[in-house]
């Protein structure tokens, strides 16, 4: 089977789809769009035995991936269980990048320094980007991870983030859902973020 086409500007986002992460999720979408990247998530991929194949195909189609492990924790609802989808997707990605290092580069993100050594000691020697659980932290670390000429300032990206965030309710109302991670809402947030690139003076444009 031929290797899948890689979008050189696509970034696979391995993130938790929970309420507490919503602001950071939006920050990733806005920040990556402002830096000239296209975020991709697994939301919208149907369940079942083919799901894993589709997740792998999505990873293979992206030149980069961000694995945000800041919310790997026990669920509040009994029985207290950690969710393993994110570490599984990280494992798939690491394997793919080991096989084809020129086709994929992955990054680890955490909110707290040294937590990764405790949760995943096999990754010792891999330095994560630390966002401190804040929107500004995400935007700042995106600029640190992806160095591109003419990158907008964190201040400018924050202004765009605030503008998109203040209109979330209207976007959700139109989409007829409360789920910010729904596939259709994700695509709509990407559109709004791209529209902001068009309007922002210092955003990177083609």
């Amino acid at each position: 089977m031929p290797p899948p086409h890689v979008n050189p500007n696509a970034v696979f986002l391995n993130i938790p789809y929970d309420e507490e992460f919503q602001k950071l999720y939006l920050a990733y979408i806005v920040g990556l769009s402002q830096l000239g990247f296209d975020p991709c998530i697994t939301s919208g991929i149907p369940g079942g035995e083919r799901r894993l194949d589709r997740v792998l195909a999505l990873i293979q189609g992206c030149r980069y991936s961000i694995h945000d492990l800041s919310r790997i924790e026990l669920s509040a609802a009994p029985p207290a269980t950690p969710r393993f989808n994110m570490p599984l997707e990280l494992g798939l990605t690491i394997t793919w990048a080991k096989l084809y290092p020129k086709r994929h580069t992955w990054f680890l993100w955490e909110s707290t320094p040294r937590r990764l050594q405790k949760s995943m000691s096999d990754l010792d020697g891999t330095d994560p980007y630390i966002h401190s659980g804040t929107v500004e932290g995400i935007l700042s670390e995106l600029r640190n991870a992806f160095v591109r000429n003419g990158a907008p300032s964190v201040q400018s990206m924050m202004a765009t983030y605030r503008l998109v965030e203040s209109n979330i309710e209207r976007i959700l109302a139109g989409a007829g859902t409360r789920n910010l991670y729904a596939a259709s809402v994700f695509r709509e947030l990407c559109l709004v973020a791209l529209d902001a690139v068009r309007r922002t003076k210092d955003a990177i444009k083609p």
């Binding site: 680890l108 891999t126 591109r148 695509r187």
Partner: peptide
């Protein structure tokens, strides 16, 4: 400190990126 990546690939035009969203 993690090592940054210097991106030199050209950015795709906004129109085609928006079209791919299939909205």
């Amino acid at each position: 400190m993690p090592r940054p990546i210097h991106i030199t690939t050209p950015i795709e035009p906004l129109e085609s990126r928006i079209k791919r969203l299939r909205i």
